[in-house]
Simulated scan of single mutants.
Amino acid sequence: MIFETERLVIRKLLMKDLESFFELESNPKVLQYATGDVKTLSECENELQKLINKYDKSINDFWIYAIVIKENSRFIGTVALVKDEEGNDEIGYRFIERYWGNGYATEACGGLINYCQEIGIKKLIGNVVKENKASEKILLKYGFQKIKEFVSHDIGLPETKYVLNL
């Protein structure tokens, strides 16, 4: 376990997560503000294995963890802590669509912020596609400040960059 919240456990990804990981990564609605590119089961299997292999690397700036419901250990999404191009710690999260609207993203984000404080991270970045009002609302709730608007080079959508000093 990496950390937990009232209802959630954040842990390393496992190959047994493949079916749920595929449900997450094959849904165009989930990916509309990320890559936009849905993945096949085979692509998800390869991606999941790559993410798992990163846990053992001595130098790793790309941490993706599973979010599971504490009560039943059901995989519902992923949370990320990755270095951006400028070396900042950037947070991110994705949830399987049927778990949207339950406050899990807000809860996971709060837990991730607490975890980052515990491990000594001093500043977090969050990039949000302008249309993604739900994610913007979460970052603002936790005190993130808007610092820049731009068009992302990877998905070509207008985004806003937020910062939170811990």
Rank of each mutant, 00 (worst) to 15 (best):
K39C: 01
F62G: 04
I155W: 10
S20R: 15
Y115P: 09
L140I: 12
A134Q: 13
E23Q: 14
I76D: 02
E25C: 10
E136I: 07
P28T: 05
A134M: 05
W63T: 02
K70M: 02
N27F: 01
I121T: 04
R74W: 00
C44I: 12
K161G: 06
I76C: 04
L140F: 04
A108T: 13
Y93D: 05
G77F: 03
E25W: 04
N127E: 15
K39E: 03
L157A: 07
D56K: 14
D61P: 03
K70G: 01
T35P: 00
L81R: 08
G111W: 06
M15D: 07
I69V: 09
L166I: 15
I69L: 12
S73G: 00
E25G: 03
T35K: 10
N27I: 02
Q117P: 00
M15R: 11
E71T: 08
R94G: 01
I138C: 09
L166A: 07
E107Y: 12
G111M: 06
R98E: 14
K148W: 00
T35Q: 02
L13M: 08
N53F: 05
A134C: 03
K137L: 02
R98D: 11
D89P: 00
L166W: 08
S135N: 08
F22C: 05
S58A: 07
I96Q: 02
P158M: 09
G101I: 09
E90T: 07
K54H: 12
I59N: 12
N53S: 14
I64N: 06
L31K: 04
L31G: 00
Y93W: 15
M15C: 04
N46I: 08
L48S: 07
E43V: 09
L24T: 07
T40R: 09
Q145T: 05
A134H: 11
I121F: 02
F21Q: 06
D61V: 11
Y162A: 06
W100R: 10
Q117F: 04
I67D: 00
N88H: 07
I59M: 06
E23S: 13
E86I: 08
S73D: 14
A66I: 09
G87W: 07
L112W: 01
K161P: 00
K70T: 02
I125V: 15
T35C: 00
D17A: 12
I96T: 01
S26T: 06
L164M: 10
M15I: 13
S135K: 11
N53T: 09
L124K: 09
K130Q: 14
L112V: 06
G126N: 13
K137A: 04
G77P: 02
F95H: 01
V82P: 00
L166T: 14
E6F: 05
L13I: 10
E97F: 00
A105F: 01
Q117N: 15
K83T: 05
V82T: 14
N114T: 15
R7E: 05
L51M: 14
D89Q: 13
